[in-house]
Amino acid sequence: MAFKVIKPGLLALLQDLGRHGHQSLGLTTGGPMDEMAFRWSNALLDNDTNSAQIEITFGMFSLEAQADTSIAITGADLGATLNDKSISPWRSYAIKKGDVLAFHQPIWGLRAYLAVKGGFLCEPTLGSVATVMREKIGGLTGKGDKLQKGDVLKYQPFSNHQDRAVPRLAIPNYGQTEIPVILGYQYESFSTLERANFFSSDYRVSGNSDRMGYRLEGKVITSDLKGIISEGIAYGAIQVPKDGQPIVLLRDRQTIGGYPKIGCVTRYGGGTLSQQKPGDVIQFTPITVDQAERERHLQMSRLAQWR
């Protein structure tokens, strides 16, 4: 049985935790922009950690159930309704045959995650169903297509539903505007003044941001390096191109690049950043590797203990 897509919205993509081990071939990882929201959605249903979900950006997305099941919604509050009745994110819900689930417009945040009991059934491509539109790989068709009206998303029927909710302490604050940054090895190529400008300035999220990278508008910063030999790009790398406007490279980033990088946002910070809409204002704050590891350990431990 399955969900049938009624309205495809602006951007709804099938995702798992990503396509790993293929960056040497030029293929990026893909995966959920907000990893912790994704992980909690599967946890609410006792799903495998990597079970496929739908990442819904901005909303305007609706589906109809063709069999009983359980769902979980995490991430942004996109004004979701079940049979026209409002429902909240970070909870699980029972679904009956014929139910209509709809996501409207953002109340807070930008991306919501929809999980179904047992995960959406989709044939993986190179070991993953993660949709990367730019590379035309993954997703329902295997060709990187976003979900379209009439698409059928299969799942195993399930009727033994349990109401569950994510603990309040584990729900992130998407109003948080400070994004943690680990300093990179090219940090020294930025003068003391340029570093101070970077960490003391507000940056506005550009409308030209996407899953590949968040482009920012604000104080121009420059590096003493005029250019570097192209090298591998880590998740969260903050590239500074010639125009001096930082770009934070995220899930669908290119695998190599040749611009100086002042640092790298953490996965948790990247998840928070990905919930910011064009026009939102953020700031960067430096942290150590130890601090980043402690935050990651805290988040993953909380999830594991709850499971």
Rank of each mutant, 00 (worst) to 15 (best):
H297P: 01
Y203R: 02
A102R: 15
Y259D: 06
K277Q: 15
I282C: 05
D163T: 11
E35K: 14
L82M: 15
T57E: 05
A196W: 04
P180T: 01
D224N: 15
K117Y: 12
D224R: 15
R302K: 15
V100R: 15
D163G: 01
P124A: 11
T255H: 04
N197A: 09
Q245P: 03
L110Q: 07
Q254E: 13
S201M: 00
S274F: 10
G26D: 05
T141W: 02
G244W: 07
I238H: 01
S209V: 13
K97E: 01
S200P: 00
P157C: 00
T49S: 14
I73W: 09
L27Q: 05
L153Y: 02
I107D: 02
F190V: 12
R195M: 01
G127N: 08
A65C: 05
G150Y: 03
P172L: 01
I179K: 07
A237M: 03
K96L: 03
L140I: 10
S230E: 12
Q299Y: 03
I73T: 03
L121T: 05
V181P: 04
S274V: 08
G279H: 03
D16P: 08
L114E: 07
A102G: 13
I56R: 03
R164F: 05
S88Y: 01
K219N: 07
S200W: 00
I221C: 08
H297N: 14
F198I: 06
K261C: 14
R267L: 14
L169V: 14
G244K: 10
L82R: 12
Y93L: 02
V205M: 10
G18P: 02
M212N: 13
P260L: 02
I247P: 03
D34L: 05
I256W: 10
W108D: 10
L110M: 11
R39W: 04
S70T: 13
K85M: 09
R251C: 11
G213T: 10
F58H: 00
G59M: 04
A102W: 13
D290A: 11
A94L: 12
C264T: 15
G118D: 10
L110N: 10
D16H: 01
I228R: 07
I179P: 12
Q299E: 02
V5Q: 04
P286A: 04
T222Q: 15
V240A: 08
L153P: 05
Q275M: 01
R251Q: 14
A52H: 04
T125A: 04
F199T: 05
H297R: 15
T69Q: 06
G98V: 00
A52K: 10
Q283F: 00
S159C: 08
L17C: 05
I87V: 14
A65F: 05
S191D: 02
L114I: 11
G18Q: 03
K261N: 13
R294Q: 15
F103P: 02
G218Y: 01
R204E: 10
K85L: 09
Q148R: 10
D202V: 05
K226E: 08
F61R: 08
D163L: 13
P260Q: 01
C122L: 02
E293T: 13
L114N: 07
Q156T: 14
I262F: 04
I233F: 03
T74P: 12
S24M: 05
A237H: 01
E293D: 12
V166L: 07
G258N: 08
I56Y: 10
P167G: 08
H297F: 15
E295I: 08
I73Y: 07
W306H: 00
L126C: 10
L249R: 06
K242M: 05
D145E: 04
L101W: 13
T28Y: 13
P172T: 00
